[in-house]
Design a binder for these strands. Structure first.
Length: 521
RNA sequence: CGGGGUGUAGCGUAGCCCGGUAUCGCGCCUGCUUUGGGAGCAGGAGGCCGCAAGUUCGAAUCUUGCCACCCCGACCA
């Protein structure tokens, strides 16, 4: 769509110089990303575009997810979906449109979403009387406006009313993969777009305890996915009342730390209590013959995860993808002299087949139109975990060259048994990326005991700050107003040192425990 | 929604203050030479200067309005 402001210009305005040879690099998708120290947002934005993940669409705040970006999302979907199935959930699909009246049934819920809804008011266009283009046909006004779903609790609960009569219908464990629209004031590729893709689970249970267990179970699924698939260490915890989901009794979340020291909420799981059941009158006959409202939960993760993964692992050369979520895990680049490609390919293809036989996602880059150096740089930018460079010279010596993306190391590998070695290397890279992110998070999680220290840390050493807080929404708000830091969560796995009582950083009032503060995306 | 910035070829730009029909680089096309870290040389194609009105003999340039995008803030997954 023609980014009309050049990123060079933006960089210059932001006051920093660029890396090498940029005009050349611009088109060849090269090294010349903004260096992130100076402006992390710009770096991230440019990285997403250059790596071919997504770009801004012509529609305000929306994005076009390009094939490479979508491939990552598909891998995420597949892994998560398997985990949902294992925990007993089924997929279904609910309407995109929500009658306006549905939204007003749960008071807190309206409050939370009313300000950011796209509303459908008409169902027809007609030719403009002045002969230019089309206008909305005033005759085609809807009796009741439709909201483009910002989340599906309301349509789903109005449906559940019909699905649930007896305790025999419970628990009802449904998930939906969908796109939703929230008219946010400010957008950012993947992290906050007007339209985004996600999954939302909506369950109904006979008892509050079952609902709470479900909420926690799905939180654990998310944490498991973040850590073992995305290689992203997360803090599991509960939100404060201020940050709680509109209509929930309790909101659990996983919080991750990005490389610029800002936190990112990566997933949420809500205990809805009986709020939605009451709002939509969903009752069931108990075994004992009574009539009770069901207990609900909802939980979701979105394409934001892609953004989080990029911001957590990537470097100035481009993306660094964890092997389990890399669309291409191994790229093979042939090194050859003119006219010798076919001959070399014939020798390389069996090797590629060996990798495929082990279930490795491998690409043989036999493009004759680009040179090896260009291919190296391009695949690095796209975050392919392992690159193999193979020339006739190597094959004659029964070796090949391996380069790993995470450490940038290069070494030679003997051909016999190389496929198994590569497979093991992918596992090692996955673990290394996680460890690196974990080390980073630990190094950037600090404790503050005084207000001045708290402020200093946020400004000078951004990251999580563990601090005492008196437990009141008012204090939380004051801290936010003065420092832009929010309480990310009250962590569930709290170290004994942090579980001990203390005094509030701002008011000096008694505090039961430390909580995680940070500036956040 | 507020503050700031920018729209010129596929991408990045010069020109604008001081009006005279658009500069350069990359990419693209053709040919030759190259190919173990983003190739070299030669030739070539490509533009309603964001849109609309106005001023003027004449507008990329001046005036007004609109639109779009980027950054920052408030809001949020």
């Amino acid at each position: 769509m023609g980014a009309q402001t050049g990123w060079q210009k933006s960089c210059r305005r932001a006051g920093f110089s660029l890396r090498i040879n940029q005009s050349y690099a611009d088109n060849r998708m090269s090294k010349s990303l903004p260096t992130r120290r100076e402006d992390y947002s710009l770096w991230y934005n440019e990285l997403v575009k250059r790596a071919g993940l997504a770009e801004n669409s012509a529609v305000r705040g929306c994005m076009v997810v390009k094939p490479y970006g979508w491939a990552i999302w598909e891998l995420m979907q597949r892994a998560l979906d398997d985990m949902f199935k294992e925990t007993g959930h089924e997929n279904a699909a609910f309407p995109l449109f929500i009658p306006k009246s549905f939204l007003s049934k749960e008071a807190a819920h309206v409050e939370g979403f009313a300000k950011e809804c796209a509303v459908v008011t008409h169902y027809r266009l007609k030719a403009s009387p002045d002969g230019k283009g089309v206008i909305v046909d005033p005759e085609a006004k809807l009796e009741e406006e439709l909201i483009v779903r910002p989340t599906s609790e309301t349509v789903i609960w109005s449906t559940y009313k019909n699905w649930i009569q007896s305790y025999r219908d419970l628990p009802l464990l449904i998930n939906q993969w969908a796109n939703v629209v929230r008219w946010e004031m400010r957008t950012r590729l993947f992290l906050r777009t007007t339209e985004f893709y996600w999954q939302e689970g909506h369950t109904a249970h006979a008892t509050h305890q079952e609902g709470q267990e479900e909420t926690r179970r799905m939180l654990d699924v998310y944490a498991d996915f973040a850590e073992n698939w995305m290689a992203l260490p997360v803090v599991k915890g509960t939100k404060t009342a201020n940050e709680r989901f509109a209509g929930a009794l309790e909101t659990y979340c996983i919080e991750a730390l990005m490389q610029d020291g800002k936190a990112l909420q990566a997933g949420t799981s809500h205990d809805l209590g009986q709020n939605f059941a009451k709002a939509f009158d969903v009752q069931f006959a108990t075994k004992e013959g009574g009539l009770e409202h069901v207990w609900g939960t909802s939980w979701g993760v979105s394409t934001r995860l892609i953004g989080g993964m990029i911001m957590a692992h990537s470097d100035d050369e481009g993306l660094v993808l964890p092997p389990r979520l890399a669309p291409i895990q191994v790229v093979v680049v042939p090194i050859y002299k003119t006219g010798q490609l076919d001959e070399l390919s014939a020798r390389i293809r069996p090797l590629v087949a060996q990798l495929k036989a082990l279930g490795i996602r491998v690409k043989y880059d036999d493009r004759d139109t680009e040179r090896p150096g260009f291919k190296f740089a391009e695949w690095e930018l796209k975050g392919v975990p392992v690159r193999l460079a193979i020339g006739a010279r190597d094959l004659d010596q029964d070796v090949l060259e391996v380069a790993r993306r995470d450490t940038k190391e290069k070494f030679q590998l003997p051909l016999p048994g190389f496929a198994e070695r590569i497979q093991a290397l992918l596992t090692e890279i996955q673990a290394n990326i996680y460890q690196k992110a974990l080390t980073f998070r630990e190094a950037n999680t600090r404790r503050a005991d005084t207000w001045t220290e708290f402020q200093r840390l946020l400004d000078e050493e951004p990251g999580f700050v563990l601090a005492h807080w008196d437990g009141t929404p008012e204090t939380e708000q004051r801290i936010k107003d003065e420092t832009k830091a929010t309480i990310r969560c009250l962590s569930l796995d709290v170290a004994s040192e942090d579980a001990a009582p203390g005094v509030c950083i701002l008011t000096g009032q008694p505090s039961a425990r430390r909580v995680h503060f940070a500036r956040a995306y």
